[in-house]
């Protein structure tokens, strides 16, 4: 599970360099997220622009990754493809996460 992280003072961007977050990799994704977001910025943006498939196991792992951040840090999502967006809308999880069109939009929201 290839995750790449970059960080500024109050924002961490975690880029998923994978095409799928599915049942075969959901646990690895959750564990890798725990590693890369162990300490850090109050806002974490998960960049899903390269992901074209998420199933219910992948969705559960993203929810778990948000819970791992605790009460004071937030996990936002960015760059959802149509297939990924469908999963969040169908399950109403789009009401739980703040979803940005892309990383640039998230950066604009949290700048300053």
């Amino acid at each position: 599970m290839d995750l790449q992280s970059s960080e500024t003072a109050d924002m961490q961007i975690v880029t998923v360099n994978e095409a799928r977050i599915d049942a075969a990799v959901a646990i690895r994704f959750k564990d890798r997220m725990r590693e890369v977001t162990g300490t850090g910025a109050p806002h974490v943006i998960l960049d899903l622009a390269q992901v074209d498939f998420i199933d219910s196991s992948g969705l559960g792992a993203i929810v778990a990754a948000m819970k791992q951040l605790g009460a004071t840090r937030r996990l936002d999502l960015a760059g959802l493809s149509a297939n990924v967006d469908r999963v969040f809308r169908l399950t109403r999880m789009d009401s739980v996460f703040t979803i940005h069109d892309d990383v640039a939009q998230a950066q604009a929201v949290y700048a300053g």
Partner: peptide, 13 residues
């Protein structure tokens, strides 16, 4: 937040 489900989405979809 802590009580959000991490499963049970599949059959609904």
């Amino acid at each position: 937040l802590d009580d959000l489900p991490e499963g049970g989405f599949g059959w609904f979809m």
